[in-house]
Nucleic acid binder design. Structure first.
Lengths: 228, 228
DNA sequence: CAGCGCAGAATTTGATCATATTTTGAGCGC
DNA sequence: GCGCTCAAAATATGATCAAATTCTGCGCTG
């Protein structure tokens, strides 16, 4: 019944190791994480099949995952959109980030190698350059990469997964913060974190990371409060 | 967690229809949560389409959500199964439950009404009966219902969602605990929690809940340690 | 001769797509 | 303004393709 439309799709571009739904998920995830989608923006399945060149089923699965992640919301009728954070949401996220990242920093400090610390330092150097130039996407990528790389060193996958997921919730708002205040005023306790890691001082690393989180989320909370 | 379900504008002609993928998700969720699936058990799409009488796409979407929840794991090749908790996983879950549920209890204590406390007490009474009779499914349902109902009173959806999700990770193991030790030895600090709630004592409620979590998870950790 | 291992077939299962069905929201006439 | 019709978007099904595991039979070795 189907007219055989030759599906010379992506088989030629090498070994397809990742399923399409995984690819779509990663793409959408990055778009949300790095502010390519604004809070409140509507997301349609058919729009994504068109813009990402994927089929319906993979897009559908990716959206379900992202809803479960809290990166998208299902709006009762069958609409899906990027959530707008409320101040209350932000407050809870702050609590979670502080308690979870504190523990991640503590664990990471106890096991991280010098080579990995150097890698973190390099990420931070790139990040600094992005900040000084006012490169917002560069800042967003670098900042997330710094934290995420640190999480990975904690050898605590359950904690790390939740911490990573939280970024999806405030990512779109973080972009708004940058648009409002620029990159200059953004906090950067990363130097303190690196120093603590080099000393192997778990408590110092934990408290530096908590401070970094506090200062960053404070800006988010400020923008959200202003919006109401 | 309860997203506002369509509260029936046009319910005259029949029941509110939940999408099939939502129904499948809820069914699977309960099966995992209440120990109908054993840790390590394989989960196949086609098996579920048969056993639940649903189509492929809804099952697929439900599975993606549950993987995102941590209730199922994607095993590299394309297989999906119920995860086996490691002792390290359990340790992280304990930390998370203690910090998150502490905060939920604190918030709930400040805003819960007497009627809701009565409802909790009633759930706890049913739970006690299940324990004394050795009714394992009854215990599992009641225990989760008690905690989940408490979460809902905290007015903190982000925290509550994560707390609810954590149950999916240790649910299957909790069932194993019951099979091992029976229901008699299970902890029940619920009376302390209720007392604290009636007094409106947030700190007491928080610490009672933390104790309940500690004692329950201790048993899970014991079984996991034994398995290795 | 029995047991072991391996290549390839058969089967099971997952991934994707095209299509049919249903629902929602909006436009239009009354 | 109210109800009806229509288009667009989401839901859901079954078919088809691809991958992985299991099964099987053959040859080889001890």
């Amino acid at each position: 019944m189907a007219m055989v439309k030759n599906a010379a799709v992506r088989t030629m571009s090498g070994p397809v190791q990742m399923p399409a739904h995984e690819v779509v998920y990663q793409q959408l995830r990055e778009q949300i994480l790095f502010g390519e989608m604004a809070p409140g923006q509507a997301v349609t399945i058919q729009g994504l099949t068109a813009s990402l060149g994927a089929g319906m089923t993979p897009v559908r699965e990716a959206i379900r995952r992202l809803i479960s992640d809290g990166a998208l919301v299902f709006q009762g009728n069958r609409r899906v959109s990027v959530p707008k954070l409320s101040s209350e949401d932000a407050e809870q996220i702050i609590y979670l980030r502080k308690t979870i990242e504190k523990e991640l920093a503590r664990r990471a400090a106890l096991r991280i190698s010098d080579a990995e610390i150097d890698r973190l330092a390099e990420i931070d150097a790139v990040l600094d350059r992005a900040i000084s130039v006012g490169d917002v996407p560069g800042y967003l990528h670098g900042n997330y990469q710094f934290h995420s790389t640190l999480y990975a060193q904690a050898d605590a996958p359950v904690l790390a997964e939740i911490a990573n997921r939280l970024w999806l919730r405030f990512g779109p708002s973080l972009r708004v913060v940058c648009g409002r205040f620029g990159t200059q005023s953004l906090p950067d306790r990363h130097k303190d974190i690196l120093t603590a890691l080099r000393k192997g001082d778990a408590d110092a690393a934990a408290s530096a990371l908590v401070q970094d989180v506090e200062q960053g989320m404070e800006q988010v909370a400020a923008v959200l409060a202003e919006e109401n």
